[in-house]
């Protein structure tokens, strides 16, 4: 990650210097800083709300049932040896919110899950196989009903805003399958 980030900065700055627009660098950093802060400030309320609601949910017994259901269905993706019950519960809350499509809630639950997986891995500096598979699942869009896309399509006068739902399932299926195969192969090698 650190390498990718440094490379992005170095390339941008070198290009700006050669293209003769060095002033864009500082302007761009200023703009990005403003944008990032505004985004985070506007997210705080929702993130905290979901964090609160799911803190209630994780103290109930329903989470145990949901967790069992998930271990039966997608448990085969993960290595059960280093997987604590807490990790399982957080992961299944994250996946549920991903499927329902509550972005902020799945971020909150995803962070809890990865922290717990990190603990299962004895806080090793190198992420475990479970962690890489879990993050990969989060980079795929598991959302069942792409509501924001449907809304945008009808806003722009589409004749059938929901026509994209099934193709999206097919595409997500293919990309998820490739992603999982890729991460499994990489996990074996590195």
């Amino acid at each position: 990650m650190s390498k990718v980030w440094c490379l992005m900065l170095i390339i941008s700055i070198v290009v700006a210097l050669f293209m003769g627009n060095p002033d864009t660098i500082i302007n761009s950093i200023m703009d990005s800083g403003k944008n990032a802060t505004q985004n985070v400030i506007s997210l705080i309320g929702m993130m905290c709300f979901w964090s609160g609601i799911f803190n209630v949910f994780e103290k109930t017994s329903a989470i145990k049932k949901l967790s069992k259901f998930f271990s039966k269905t997608i448990g085969f993706l993960f290595d059960k040896k280093n997987l604590s019950d807490t990790s399982k519960e957080y992961m299944c809350m994250n996946l549920t919110t991903n499927i329902i499509g509550v972005g902020n809630a799945s971020t909150v639950n995803g962070i809890k899950a990865i922290k717990s997986l990190h603990k299962d891995n004895n806080e090793n500096k190198i992420p475990s196989n479970n962690m890489t598979v879990f993050v990969l699942l989060n980079t795929a869009s598991l959302q069942l009903i792409p509501s924001s896309m449907i809304a945008l399509r009808s806003l722009y006068g589409s004749e059938s805003p929901t026509a994209i739902v099934i193709p999206i399932w097919i595409v997500t299926g293919f990309s998820l399958l490739t992603g999982i195969i890729a991460i499994k192969l990489i996990n074996k090698k590195i």
Partner: peptide, 12 residues
């Protein structure tokens, strides 16, 4: 946000 902003705005 900063690194992506830079990549875009500098034309890199």
């Amino acid at each position: 946000t900063i690194s992506i902003g830079l990549l875009k705005s500098t034309g890199a």
